[in-house]
Simulated scan of single mutants.
Amino acid sequence: MLDAAFFRRWMAAAAAAVDREAGRLTELDSAIGDADHGANLQRGFAAVTAVLDKEEPGTPGAVLALAGRQLISTVGGASGPLYGTLLRATGKALGEAAEVDREQLAGALGAGVAAVGRLGGAVAGDKTMLDALLPSAEALHESFAAAREAAEAGALATAPLRARKGRASYLGERSIGHQDPGATSAALLMGALEGAAG
């Protein structure tokens, strides 16, 4: 079973992964975005770990809700509201339970991913973080490793796509051939989830 401590570990692992890969995220974003994705997420997840250390919420849902609120309030650009919505909606779907299992988390993550789609008006194939998150939430029903693998494959599969949403969509054909930074950071988040599961 997954308790609040597990979800705090997940957020700490995500912060470490973003820290490690911030340069690569910014490099990807400089090709088709504003070149700030890495730095924005770095700042956001550092704030998340700080607030979780201070407040220590007692349930999985509360951990994710607090993390989501923190991302929305500290991260500029589109990534703060999108990741914040993902975590808040997932936390809300988990409810007040003190512990959840992987199957419950998969269902809740699916609700979080759907909330991101509504907020951004994006669907699969639009070259966004959803291209990693949609298959990953589905694969989480199978295992944590399958969720990471699906997210990584989804991120890689954004390279040949033409962007239809977000900043990259302004580039039209020129967005083809570049891996989406949002899908790449989403894959880091799902890799951190597997890491937290041990």
Rank of each mutant, 00 (worst) to 15 (best):
A4R: 09
R8F: 00
R8P: 11
M11I: 13
M11G: 03
A12Y: 07
A14I: 11
A15H: 03
D19C: 12
A22Y: 00
R24T: 08
L25N: 07
T26A: 09
G33S: 00
G33Q: 01
D36L: 15
R43S: 03
R43K: 15
G44D: 00
F45T: 08
F45R: 00
A46M: 10
T49G: 06
A50E: 08
K54D: 15
E56Y: 02
E56M: 14
P60R: 08
A62P: 01
V63H: 05
V63Y: 02
A65M: 06
A67L: 03
R69D: 11
R69F: 10
L71N: 02
V75Y: 00
G77M: 14
G77R: 13
A78P: 12
P81T: 02
G84V: 11
R88H: 07
A89Y: 01
G91S: 10
G91Y: 13
K92V: 15
E96V: 13
E99M: 09
E99Q: 15
R102I: 14
E103W: 06
E103D: 15
G107P: 03
G107V: 07
G107N: 05
A108N: 04
A108C: 07
A111G: 03
G112K: 11
V113E: 04
V113S: 00
A115V: 05
G117P: 01
A124D: 15
G125E: 06
K127L: 13
D131I: 00
P135T: 01
A139Y: 04
F144T: 01
A146F: 06
E152W: 11
G154D: 01
A155H: 10
L156M: 11
A157C: 15
T158G: 03
A159Y: 14
R162P: 10
R164K: 15
K165Y: 13
G166A: 02
A168R: 00
E173M: 05
R174V: 09
S175F: 08
S175W: 02
I176M: 05
D180L: 14
P181D: 07
P181Y: 05
G182S: 09
L188K: 08
L189Q: 06
L189C: 12
L189A: 08
G191Q: 03
A192R: 12
A192N: 04
A196G: 12
A197H: 12
G198S: 15
